[in-house]
């Protein structure tokens, strides 16, 4: 399996652990991510707030480069471009989608691209998020087969954030309100997944720079929810989410008088650990809230199988009403 790879600015430095762990995991799984040569920033949520056409041209340069470098290279007419960052994923897929919808916009964008000797045909790339590729192309079975050191006993809150599941322009692979693919991936690694009602709620994005109070409240809600369910850590798939929950956790504590110490890791870091890779190889140690105390439990012998054993249904009071049946979560 070979994919075009768009790391995005964050993975170059502040979310370097995401990049490191993703490459290490890909090697274990035999998946090749070929970085788009000379890609530029996707504009995050800021560029589009300043100028429309320049924002679309900015993103389209990446699409044009990726299409040229990816399409046809592996025999497939329509190449696939994978973004590990949710904001990059959204911008790439949204621009592709809106260009398809508006020939006038495409025309303007291609006029601009022509100044750099480039052009892009909407729809000629398939833009996907890394999680989608991991669960749907690689698949849970192959992940399970690669697990060497199950994360038994680790209570994980799966955090999707916004843009990977919403608004789902082209590649909708999970429920936009209550996604479950990361839950299942974590269970595949042997971890215990706690219910996390706020799993698709917002981390605040760049609001930390605009209104600190608003942003810290959003972060607090997430930390509180994970703490309420006794999560050992929150696992995420977006560098923005990781940065906000991790680097601002102390600010939340000082503002609200709380004492949260919840490590925030990327899902690829946990995949790597479960695959038996050493912590350093998956970038552990770069987080503000140290993950090592929680991870130390993995190295130890699994605790008495209280958590791993299938939970017995609590004996029902005779009067209780049956719960609605949900479709099998598989």
């Amino acid at each position: 399996m070979r994919y075009g790879y768009y790391p995005g600015c964050s993975l170059e430095r502040n979310a370097g652990a995401y990049h490191t762990s993703l490459m290490a995991v890909a090697a274990q799984l035999g998946v090749e991510f070929a970085e788009v040569d000379d890609w530029n920033c996707c504009g995050a949520t800021e560029f589009i707030a300043v100028n429309r056409l320049r924002a679309y041209a900015l993103v389209s340069r990446n699409l044009a480069l990726a299409a040229r470098q990816t399409n046809g290279s592996n025999g497939a007419a329509r190449g696939q471009l994978v973004a590990p960052c949710s904001a990059c994923f959204l911008n790439l897929s949204k621009v592709d989608h809106y260009l398809s919808e508006s020939p006038a916009l495409t025309n303007d964008v291609n006029n601009a691209l022509a100044a750099g000797g480039l052009s892009y045909e909407p729809g000629s790339l398939r833009v996907r998020h890394l999680l989608d590729v991991m669960v749907n192309d690689v698949g849970y079975e192959r992940v399970a087969a690669t697990v060497r050191r199950p994360l038994r006993g680790l209570r994980v809150a799966p955090y999707y954030g916004c843009l990977v599941v919403r608004p789902g322009f082209r590649e909708r692979f999970d429920d936009p309100e209550y996604p479950t693919s990361l839950d299942r991936l974590m269970r595949t690694l042997g971890a215990t997944v706690v219910d996390f009602p706020l799993k698709a709620h917002c981390c605040g994005g760049h609001m930390t720079q605009i209104s600190r109070d608003v942003a810290l409240e959003l972060i607090r809600r997430l930390l509180k929810n994970a703490a309420d369910y006794q999560a050992d850590m929150i696992v995420t798939l977006c560098p923005m989410c990781q940065l906000n929950l991790d680097a601002f956790q102390e600010s939340v504590n000082s503002m609200f008088g709380t004492e949260y110490r919840i490590p925030i890791l990327f899902f690829t870091q946990l995949m790597g650990l479960a695959f038996g890779l050493p912590p350093a190889a998956v970038g552990i140690g770069k987080e503000f809230i140290d993950a090592r105390p929680a991870l130390a439990r993995i190295g130890a012998a699994p605790p008495a199988e209280a958590e791993a054993a299938p939970k017995r249904k609590p004996r029902r009071n005779d009067q209780s009403l049956p719960l609605p049946q949900m479709p099998e979560e598989e």
Binding site: N317, D318, Q319, S320, L321, L323, P324
Partner: peptide, 26 residues
């Protein structure tokens, strides 16, 4: 609850004999 569940709940011949209760039945 759905509206039809609630219809059954308030029905004297329904699962709670017409009592308005939470899912615990109490």
């Amino acid at each position: 609850f759905t509206s039809m569940e609630f219809e059954r709940m308030v029905n004297a011949a329904g699962p709670t004999a017409g009592r308005v209760v939470l899912r615990d039945g109490v």
